[in-house]
Write a protein that binds this DNA or RNA. Structure first.
Lengths: 202, 202
DNA sequence: ACAGAATACTTCGGTTCCGTAGCAATCGTC
DNA sequence: GACGATTGCTACGGAACCGAAGTATTCTGT
């Protein structure tokens, strides 16, 4: 029997988060215990969902990292982003971006193009095939994972809200600039309507 | 300038979660959008905290995976666990457990010992040095990461609760058995008092 | 008491990912 | 308009991780 995939998901014999929390409460400060529980919960939840996500991705010949890049390229009005934009926005180390684009290029889902005005910079451009793969993968991801997460709509909203605060306070994204930049990142339709310049060249 | 460590944490230019959520709402079902936001939030939060955690771990010559195993070995009354217990409880694939124990053994933080009654089974036993390293790492982890998570105590509780429900519904741990098993996993003091047998041999 | 199933761990091969260092192009400053 | 600082990407090497197959031991049912 293979370790993951196919077979649903084998449960751990007990809740590691709650177990550690008790140990921490005995030995350390209460704030450390609650913080540990937060991190452990996030880690386990990520592990759980990530397995499901990657099972889907495997079927489409992708990893989540490659999918994420592909999906963002598909979102851009020009179907192109600079590698540094990818690195900064998705918080992927530059060397990893190179690896990811190498792989996507190998499979003809993306191609590299020179930047029109900056010779240091490389653009990643999604191909028609890449766009199709991204759409198919997203569809499966939605129906097999995202729509089946075991929380009600209000709970989902609450959870996203709490994590947004955690991320904001940890400086995960630039709270000041975020809403402005997001206008730039809008979809083709939205941007075409307003006729903005490309965010890449900013 | 190195990519991570030292430097606080370079913020992404905008909130990727909120940006994707808008794209999803335009193109897919609302339940898919909220589910995607849940996964993306968890992913980013994990990424954020994991960087901080691994910066601490690096200073102690560990990765989080190795630390986690070491910490659990330190928790056990007999300072020993079977490799399969580690694999099942922490949800680490068997081959990875072998790698992790290899590495910990190489650094004399742990040693392998034969199981007294089952020749198939190997025990990992924490050494005095391992115990010290685990304690030191935990101390730093608490003060530098866990105690500084940007949420109030009630918010932490709420977040942990929501994620527990998500994990339970995804069958991440065995809800039926969990509380029973957790008694077995208690700390030395608690177990010594009740004089239970070793959970390993179960 | 024995065959077949199940369990425990390791080996092997391969991928992914990332820290560091380096190179090339551009920018900022005087 | 030149020089140092910065930025953008890639090359390299290594670490972590894991799927699948293999070996040894124990358990189960008859």
């Amino acid at each position: 029997m293979p370790y993951s995939s196919e077979v649903a998901f084998e449960a751990a014999p007990f809740d590691v988060v709650e177990a550690s929390r008790r140990v921490w409460l005995e030995r350390w400060e209460p704030e450390a215990a609650s913080g540990m529980a937060v991190f452990a919960s996030i880690l386990r939840s990520h592990q759980l969902l990530n397995e499901q996500v990657n099972d889907v991705m495997r079927r489409h010949g992708l990893t989540f990292a490659r999918y994420e890049v592909l999906a963002w390229l598909g979102t851009d009005p020009d179907s192109a982003r600079t590698l540094s934009w990818i690195s900064k926005s998705l918080r992927i180390p530059p060397a990893t971006v190179t690896d990811i684009i190498d792989r996507l290029e190998l499979e003809k889902l993306v191609r590299r193009a020179p930047h029109p005005s900056d010779a240091r910079t490389t653009l990643a451009v999604i191909t028609a095939r890449g766009r199709k793969v991204a759409t198919d993968a997203t569809h499966d991801l939605n129906t097999e994972v995202y729509e089946r997460i075991g929380l009600s709509e209000p709970q989902r909203g609450q959870l996203v809200e709490l994590l947004a605060q955690l991320r904001a306070s940890g400086n995960e994204f630039d709270v000041e600039r975020s809403s402005d930049v997001m206008e730039e990142v809008g979809t083709r339709g939205a941007r075409a309507r307003r006729g903005k310049r490309r965010p890449d060249v900013a």
